[in-house]
Design a protein around this nucleic acid. Structure first.
Lengths: 204, 204
DNA sequence: TGCTTTCGCTACGACTCGTAGCGTAATGCC
DNA sequence: GGCATTACGCTACGAGTCGTAGCGAAAGCA
């Protein structure tokens, strides 16, 4: 993923199956060993490639794990469940089920931690994980506006800020619940969360 | 912090100043090196103690950093600002200013990541950081109830669940905003956040 | 058939880890 | 004051990981 082989390029092309094998091996190693005990040499062995092959494609552990984890979030979708509340509950449950998987838990938090001191890594995470999933917030809002559950957005800048805020609130709450409080984000919790998010604390 | 010298104990007592020096050195190393490049040998040198002394008190890097970071959150307080909204805004801004410090950013996320595979570490984090700050949510609610801004809580179990939910929403949103989105949780953001938290998305 | 790039393999110096062993320093108990 | 006990600083050690270099073979393209 680091440097795709350009189209008009001479020489032996990089093996596409090696990429897939390496990313899968990375996730498997995250499950069995966790972030700190994961070594690139071990990943290479699991994937059946040489360590040097791995270093030719990824500059280090951080970048590799970002790519391995990013794929997990692509399965998120926003099926139409009839109401804004139901739509939110649905996608939050999906998000929670991904975060419940050990390869996502240990990998995601670790790269975020590393990203606090690495601007390029932060950008990579934002591009390949965060921004890609903001589509869900946008889709949910436009659907709610069509239903009349939310007033149509006017100011585009204000609108973008709101999307960011919602995303931070939803993703942040689920992550904190799952990883810090270490309690499951189950249906009961998701219902309570959605109620507060939509109607506020005062209404409860 | 690991094993305080019991009262009626013979032999040379552990140096209390060494504890403080080690924790301060750990925070300094977190600022300069970040989590992944922080080594216990380096921390020992910075603190002016032998590496073996450090290992006698903490079993590893994880436990040491938890203790070093936990101290940062003890300065949180909940001054009475007159209304629930103002109280929340105040404490969220304090929390954001702590998370803006590099020693908190890189240290906290990293130990949370490690804790996904270490039950004892998770418990240590909960005891020394998370649960200790839930007092803020409790204080804010009881103050709001006295003001009449919130209905008095009846069912104690339901009440405890709500406290946990609020805590996950507040802490999660600030952490996500600061560390993942990498945008400052400034006054404008905090005001928007508080408005959604109290009145809900539908009202906005 | 040449040219180019990737591949697997081996080997390497540099570094960190966590522990052990030693002699010394500081305290409580008799 | 002397003794037992524990903490301390220091040094050294094997084990493991890091990221890179060099090699010959393989796989594409002109």
């Amino acid at each position: 993923m680091q440097t795709r082989t350009p189209a008009g390029r001479t020489g032996r092309p990089r093996s596409a199956s090696a990429d897939a094998a390496i990313l899968a091996a990375t996730r498997q190693a995250l499950v069995e060993l966790g972030w700190s005990k994961l070594t690139l040499g071990d990943v290479a062995t699991r994937a059946g490639v040489a360590k040097t092959t791995l270093y030719r494609r990824w500059s280090g552990k951080n970048e590799l794990v970002v790519d391995a984890v990013a794929e997990l979030f692509d399965e998120l979708s926003l099926p139409d469940r009839g109401s804004l509340a139901a739509d939110i509950e649905g996608v939050v449950l999906q998000f929670a089920s991904i975060l419940a998987r050990p390869e996502a838990r240990s990998g995601l938090m670790a790269v975020v931690a590393e990203a606090t001191r690495d601007e390029a890594l932060r950008e990579r995470i934002r591009a390949s994980i965060v921004d890609r999933q903001k589509r869900l917030v946008l889709a949910g809002r436009s659907r709610a506006e069509q239903r009349g559950e939310l007033p149509p957005s006017t100011d585009p800048e204000e609108s973008a800020r709101t999307v960011d805020l919602i995303f931070d609130m939803v993703a942040g709450a689920v992550v904190h619940r799952t990883l810090v409080s270490a309690e499951p984000a189950d249906e009961a919790w998701v219902r309570s969360f959605t109620r507060v998010l939509l109607q506020g604390l005062a209404a409860a």
